[in-house]
């Protein structure tokens, strides 16, 4: 399936930004079942500084705010061809050792709630348990737009009983690492069939399953990613894969507008 994506983030600041940087992980890369046909990033109010590939293989762009910027827009536009692989990404490649994805991060540390949830789906294969975990997570953490804080941990989201896709992914990762399975966070796009305009970027998890390798699991939709999903960035948790990570001086009174449109070509 070929998806045409346009994603615009527009910031407005009441007080001008005197100096600032944003680290962006917004460029998808091509891989076996995902061909990036074209991808362009246009900036207004900022200048591109540099690009590199980080240890997870993500494309990173560093941009610098233009002096006294009061409005910044980052517009990404591109086309991506997605193959249907039923969520299977395949064997682990790259220099990052698989054990790194077993490392517990503060956001994915298992507490009593995570441990209890993991226990509730005991038995069977890793694959089977991951499939069973997805609806359990969706039930335990009710999806509420804007309900969670981006610094929430998996344990906090479970305790609160609500969250967004980021929290669902963290809970699944926390369960997987608690069970000793390597797991990682994925940030990307999901095309919902019934609409073109999407609310936000999406997030899900991948677990390294014996014999299959990496397999994607989207607890928010209780399914493995199919050809509606575009992988953009990977990490141990949200912190590693965040689309935007910034620091600035000035720029008080921020307002943010996000417009994402995904359409099948």
């Amino acid at each position: 399936m070929r998806l045409k994506i346009s994603h615009t983030t527009r910031y407005r600041f009441e007080v001008p930004v005197t100096f600032g940087l944003q680290q962006l992980r917004l460029r998808p890369r091509s891989r076996r079942d995902q061909q990036v046909i074209r991808w362009d990033m246009t900036l207004e109010g900022a200048t591109h500084q540099l690009s590199y590939e980080d240890h997870h293989g993500n494309y990173v762009d560093l941009i610098g705010f233009d002096r006294d910027c009061t409005e910044l827009s980052v517009r990404c536009e591109g086309e991506v061809e997605i193959g249907e692989a039923h969520g299977v990404i395949g064997r682990h490649v790259g220099l990052v050792p698989l054990w790194l994805y077993q490392r517990v991060t503060p956001r994915t540390k298992a507490g009593p709630a995570v441990k209890a949830l993991l226990k509730s789906v005991e038995g069977g294969t890793v694959l089977g348990r991951c499939h069973a975990l997805m609806p359990a997570i969706a039930e335990a953490v009710a999806y509420e737009t804007g309900s969670s804080e981006s610094h929430w941990t998996a344990e906090e989201a479970l305790t609160e009983g609500r969250g967004v896709c980021q929290d669902h992914a963290h809970v699944l990762i926390a369960c997987a690492r608690e069970a000793g399975w390597p797991a990682r966070y994925v940030s990307g796009y999901l095309m919902m069939d019934d609409r073109t305009a999407q609310d936000a970027m999406h997030a899900w998890a991948e677990v390294h399953v014996p014999d299959l390798g990496w397999v994607g699991f989207d607890p928010a939709n209780a399914m493995s990613p199919d050809e509606h999903y575009v992988r953009v960035a990977l990490g141990l948790d949200y912190g590693d894969a965040a689309p935007v990570n910034g620091r600035r001086v000035g720029g008080e009174g921020e307002s943010l507008e996000v417009a994402i449109e995904i359409a099948q070509q």
Partner: peptide, 12 residues
């Protein structure tokens, strides 16, 4: 310095 690692990783 914010971004010093990015410059480093970009080989500059």
């Amino acid at each position: 310095v914010p971004g010093i690692m990015d410059v480093y990783r970009a080989g500059r």
